[in-house]
């Protein structure tokens, strides 16, 4: 599987909701269902999410919230999608996760006190993913990583740096996608999204020391797997 770039370029929240209506692929929570069904505009969605009693209120505050949301959170949809795609290894699952994450992000947006909006959003994506995982692929949680190394190279052989350079993009992506979940998450946040260790710690909800050791191990595993594949390809 090669991850294609996400196609959510410059999209408004309302347009995203409209797009989501046509794309919902599985059962969603009751709230999401209300949110994504029918000809609701984003303002209607705001009213539903906030549980506003009044149908006729001018909704100035809510429109202001929507404007701020569009400005600070919407531009990170590609990053959100890419993370969800790397974590779930599946296109339509990733879309569902992103939709759920954006719904939550919007709901809790008033709790966002400035700072880096991208890492704030990706933390929600990560949480949404793990909730999704619990319901859909429980067996993947805590899968031991030794499984992955079954067919890997003999670790005693010296990795050949020139071999690594030959690893093309497709092989690299394929190999990353086969890493255990917790390594994949940290690796993607670091190497593809360029977050600092501290930011990763906040997004993935793990201590800083864990980020350090997971990233080191993720890179070692990636290298071992790649070398194994390239060695086999050579023979």
């Amino acid at each position: 599987m090669v991850n294609e770039p996400a196609d959510y370029g410059d999209i408004s929240f309302a347009a995203f909701v409209a797009k989501a209506q046509g794309e919902m692929t599985r059962e969603v929570s009751h709230e999401s269902a209300i949110f994504f069904c029918g000809n609701k505009t984003a303002q209607d969605a705001v009213r539903i999410i906030n549980g506003s009693k009044s149908q006729n209120a001018p909704l100035v505050e809510e429109q202001d919230k929507l404007a701020r949301f569009e400005q600070s959170i919407m531009p990170h949809m590609n990053a959100a999608y890419n993370l969800a795609r790397w974590l779930s290894s599946n296109d339509s699952d990733a879309r569902d996760i992103v939709q759920e994450a954006y719904l939550r992000a919007f709901k809790f947006f008033s709790g966002f006190r400035g700072g880096d909006s991208r890492s704030w959003l990706l933390r929600i994506v990560s949480n949404a993913f793990y909730d999704w995982l619990k319901h859909n692929r429980r067996e993947e949680i805590g899968k031991p990583f030794e499984d992955v190394l079954e067919h890997a190279a003999d670790p005693s052989t010296t990795p050949d740096a020139s071999l690594l350079e030959k690893a093309d993009n497709e092989l690299l992506h394929q190999t990353i996608s086969e890493l255990p979940l917790e390594f994949r998450e940290i690796l993607v946040l670091r190497e593809l999204e360029g977050f600092s260790y501290k930011e990763i710690s906040a997004i993935a909800s793990v201590p800083l020391g864990t980020v350090m050791s997971r990233l080191a191990r993720a890179r070692e595993h990636l290298r071992t797997l790649l070398v194994g594949r390239l060695e086999r390809g050579k023979k």
């Binding site: 670091r190 600092s196 260790y197 350090m212 050791s213 990233l215 080191a216 191990r217 890179r219």
Partner: peptide
């Protein structure tokens, strides 16, 4: 040091 090497090279220590 095996673990810290990565953090060191990333400028995160």
């Amino acid at each position: 040091t095996k673990t810290l090497l990565h953090a060191y090279l990333d400028g995160e220590l």
